[in-house]
Design a protein around this nucleic acid. Structure first.
Lengths: 347, 347
DNA sequence: TTGTACGCGTTATCAT
DNA sequence: ATGATAACGCGTACAA
C-alpha cells in the first residue's frame, strides 16, 4: 500500500479474471454473472478502488472539470456566488476549478488558456472590469466548451447568461430617494465599461428624468475600483461641491461607506442632511451606523442557477438549443442611512 | 478545427515525422536537428498545440493539481488566504481545486475522498470546526500526498503547519483592556474544539491571571458559529448580567459587532461604558462606528507561505525533511470601540 | 459469461 | 538524427 493506487488490473490478477470483466462488473454490465459481480465489488470495496479520472478523461476526451473565472473573491458578492455554484456542482460528477482574474483582462486571457489546456468541460465566467473584447471566450466556444456568463454581461457574446436587472435596482433606489424628498442626488459610479455599472448609471439617469429632477454633470463621478478606499476621494469631491448633494446613490456598498465616512467627517448628519444608498447588501451593511440602505441581489441563487444551466448545457452538448437569458430582480432595502419615504398620497 | 484538439500525432502526420520526434522537438531534446525543431515549433504555434494534461497525468501518475479545503469563503479571512494561495500557485505549473467543507466534518471527509480520487499532488487544509479526528488526512499522507495545515491546527497530526499565535493575540488584547482600566472583562469565545478558539481563550485567561484580574465563570460564553447572528444571544446574555462587564473580548469581528449591536441597543455607551475588542481585522471593521478595535492577522502572507511550503514539499517528495511549523504573530489594532490605554507611568 | 485487442495522448527506451 | 514500441488505466467492440 502507499505506492500507487489499486487498478483494475491489480484486481483482475487478484481474482484471476481479465481487467475488462472487472470493469464490466463494476459498471453493472448485464452480461456478468452475479457471483463475479459480487466478488469484484467486494474486493473493490475492500481495496478502496477508485477509478483513475485521468484515464477516463483521456478515453472520453473530457476532464469532468468546470472552470470558474471571477474577478476576486474577497467581497461577499463573489464569494457568495461561488458558494452557490459549489453547492450545485459539488454533488454532481464534476469538479470545480476556481480562478481569479484580479480584474485584469490580461490575467483573464491567461486563465482561459489554462482552462482550455486543461480541457475543462465548461466554464462559468464573470469578466474583469477591464475586459472589452470577448474573443478568448469565443475561442473556447469554438472548441465546444460551453460558456455561461453571470452577473457582468459580455455584450455581443452569444452565450447563456444569468444577470441581475441592475437598471431596475438603480431606478428603484433613485426613485425612492426622490420620493423621500431629495432633489440633489449624486451618483458614485463604478468603472465605466462594466455592464453592471452602465446599467446602474442608466437607471439613475432615467429615474431622475422620469421624475423631472434635473441632473448635473458634476453630480456623476466614477471610481476606479470597488473597494472602500477607491471611493474616498470621489466622495470628498462630491461633498465639497458648492451645491452640496442631499443624496448619494453609490455603485456598491463599499463605495457607499466611503461616502458615509466622508460625510460624517465633514459634519453632515445622515440621513437628515444627506441620504446615502448603496448596492449589493453586503452582510455587514446592516450593522453599520447608520445602517446602510442598499439594493439586495439574490447572489446565492444567481450562482446556483448559473451552475445548473452550465450542467444542463454540458449534458445537452450538441443539441443546438437557444441560449438562455435569465435576469434576477434586485430589491431595495431601506435602512437608516436614508430618509424615510413620506406616505405617498394618491400617487 | 473544433472537433478535438491538435495532438502530437496530428502534427507528426502533417510534418511527415513520427510522434516521438515531434515530442522531442517540443521538449528541446539535444538530439534533434535545428531545422526540424524549428519546423515543429512553428507548426505547434500555428495550430496552438496544447499538450493534454490527462495523458501526462496518466503517464507520470500525478495530476498537477493541488486541493484546498476551507470551511467557507464568505468571510474575508478565508477568501484573503485563498487569494494568497492563488497568487503563489497560479504562476506555478499547478492548478488549484478549492473545496468548501461548510464547517462540516462529514463534508470534509467526502472532499478528502474526492481529492484523493483525483490524485491531487498535495493539499492545503484548514479543518472544519467539527473535526476532531484527522485520520482522513493521515490516509492521504499514507498515499504520499503531502498535507499542509493552515490557521486551524490539527493537534496530533504530523504535517507542515502554518499557524497564527492566537494565544499572543488574545493576550495582547486582554492585557490592553486591563491597562486601559477595565476590570470586568468578558469573553465571547468560538466553538470549543477549534485550536484557534482554545488558544484565544487561554490567552484571555492567562492575561487576566497574570495581571491579577479575577475571572468569573459567567463572563465566558461560547458561540456556535462565527457569524454576526450567532453572537447576538450570547452577547445579550452577557450584557444582562447583574454584574455587567465593562469590556468584551470577542473571538472574531463578527461576534464583536454582535456585542456592539446589543450594547448600543441596551443604551450602553462605547467605549465609555464598555470596551469591545474583536479578532481578524476584517476590512470593514474600521468603518463601523465605533470603529472596531481588533487583532490583525497576516492572512495574505499566511496563504502564500502555506502554498510555498506545499510546493516545496511536493518538489522534495521522498526526502524525509522534518515537518515545518511556522507561526505568524498577530497585532493588536486599537480603534474607537475601546478606551485608550492610559500613559503607562514607569511600568 | 468471459477474454482479447485496441485506442485515448504522451514520453521513455530501445532500436536504426 | 529519427522511428518503432511499450506503457500509464480504462472502456468497449469484437471474438470465443
Amino acid at each position: 500500500m502507499g505506492k500507487g493506487r489499486v487498478t483494475l488490473k491489480d484486481m483482475a490478477t487478484e481474482l484471476k479474471l481479465s481487467p475488462s470483466t472487472v470493469s464490466r462488473a463494476l459498471n453493472d454490465h448485464p452480461a456478468i454473472g452475479d457471483k463475479t459481480k459480487k466478488a469484484v465489488k467486494e474486493l473493490a470495496n475492500e481495496l478502496d478502488y477508485q477509478p483513475n479520472p485521468m484515464a477516463l478523461g483521456l478515453l472520453q476526451k473530457k476532464s469532468n472539470t468546470i472552470g470558474v473565472i471571477v474577478p476576486e473573491i474577497t467581497s461577499h458578492f463573489f464569494s457568495a456566488i461561488i458558494t452557490g455554484i459549489q453547492d450545485v456542482i459539488g454533488p454532481s460528477e464534476y469538479n470545480i476549478m476556481i480562478c481569479l482574474s484580479n480584474e485584469s483582462y490580461e490575467e483573464e486571457v491567461t486563465l482561459v488558456k489554462k482552462l482550455s489546456k486543461m480541457r475543462v468541460d465548461g466554464i462559468l465566467v464573470s469578466p474583469s472590469s477591464e475586459t472589452k473584447d470577448f474573443n478568448h471566450f469565443r475561442r473556447l466556444q469554438n472548441n465546444d466548451v460551453p460558456v455561461v456568463v453571470f452577473d457582468r454581461d459580455c455584450p455581443g457574446l452569444e452565450a447563456d447568461k444569468v444577470l441581475v436587472d441592475d437598471y431596475s435596482g438603480a431606478y428603484q433606489a433613485v426613485e425612492y430617494l426622490i420620493r423621500s424628498g431629495c432633489s440633489k442626488i449624486a451618483h458614485l459610479g463604478g468603472p465605466l465599461n462594466l455592464s453592471t455599472t452602465k446599467h446602474r448609471l442608466q437607471g439613475y439617469l432615467d429615474a431622475m428624468e422620469k421624475n423631472g429632477v434635473p441632473t448635473r454633470e458634476e453630480y456623476i463621478l466614477h471610481v476606479d475600483g470597488f473597494s472602500h478606499k477607491d471611493g474616498l476621494k470621489p466622495a470628498k469631491k462630491l461633498l465639497a461641491l458648492e451645491n452640496t448633494p442631499d443624496a448619494i446613490f453609490a455603485v456598491n456598498d463599499s463605495i457607499a461607506t466611503s461616502a458615509i465616512h466622508m460625510a460624517k467627517k465633514m459634519g453632515l448628519r445622515i440621513p437628515e442632511d444627506i441620504s446615502i444608498v448603496g448596492f449589493d447588501d453586503e452582510p455587514h451593511s446592516s450593522y453599520f451606523s447608520p445602517s446602510l440602505s442598499t439594493v439586495w441581489q439574490p447572489v446565492y441563487s444567481l450562482g446556483m442557477l448559473s451552475a445548473r444551466i452550465l450542467l444542463q448545457r454540458i449534458k445537452d452538448r450538441g443539441s443546438n438549443d437557444e441560449f438562455r437569458l435569465e435576469i434576477f430582480k434586485p430589491e431595495l432595502v431601506i435602512r437608516t442611512s436614508s430618509r424615510k419615504e413620506p406616505i405617498n398620497i394618491v400617487g
